[in-house]
Amino acid sequence: MAANPMDQFKVHKIGPQIEISGIDLSFTNASLFMAISALLIAITLMLGTREKRIVPGKIQLISEMIYNFISKMIGDTAGKKAKPYFPFIFSLFIFILFCNMIGMLPYSFTVTSHIIVTLTFALFIFISVTILGFVIHGFKYLKIFVPSGVPLILLPIISVIEIISYLSRPVSLSVRLFANMMAGHTMLKVFGGFVVSLGLIGGWLPLSFSVALTGLEILVAFLQAYVFAILTCIYLNDALNLHH
C-alpha cells in the first residue's frame, strides 16, 4: 500500500530552528509554499503591468481580468462604500487562488488545506468587520441581530439564531475552505494509491478517476477562492450598509 494519504499535509521544519520567547516560529514547508505563492503572484502581476499596451497581451489581460472580476464582485455585493477595501479583497482572492492552484501540483504543499491558515484569515476578517461595523454605526450595529419585519414573539428566538449565525461566520468561512482543499487532496492521493496498488491491469479505472478529480479540484480551487472573497464582501457589506 502507498503512503498514508494524510502525509501530504504534514508540516516539517526547513532550515534552522527559530524561537521567539519560547514560541517555535521555524520556517517550514508551509511557509515555503506561502512564499512561492506570493512570489508567483508578484511575478505574474509584474509581467502583467510591465507593458502598458492599449490592446493587452496575455499576461496583462489576466491581471486586468482579475482586477475587473474583483471590482465587479465588490461593486455587486458591497457597493461603492467598499472601495477602500478593494486591495485587501484583491490580495485575499489572488493569494488563496494561487495557494490552491499551486497545491494542485504533485509533491507540492497546499497552504490552504490547513485549518490554522484559513482560520487566521477568517478570524481577521470577522474581527475587522465587527470593529468596522461598530465604528461606522455605533451601538446601532447590534440591529444586525434584530431583523425587521419579524413578529415580536419570534424576535428573541430569531435574535439568538442571528447571534449564533453571526458568531459562526469565522468557523464556517475557515472550515469551508480548509475542508474542501483537504478532502480533494486526500481523494486524489487515495485514488493515486489505488493506481499503484492495482497495477497495470486494474489501475486504469482509478487513474481515469484521478484525472477527472484533478479537473474537478482545479475548479474547486478557483471556486473556493471566489467563495471566500465573495463571503468577505458580503460580511463587509453588512458592516458598511446596515440592511436589517
Partner: peptide
C-alpha cells in the same frame, strides 16, 4: 496533521 499544534504559531507568523 492539520490538528497538530506544533507549527501553528509558525504558520500564522509566516502567513
Amino acid at each position: 496533521p492539520q490538528l497538530d499544534p506544533q507549527y501553528w504559531a509558525s504558520q500564522v507568523f509566516w502567513l
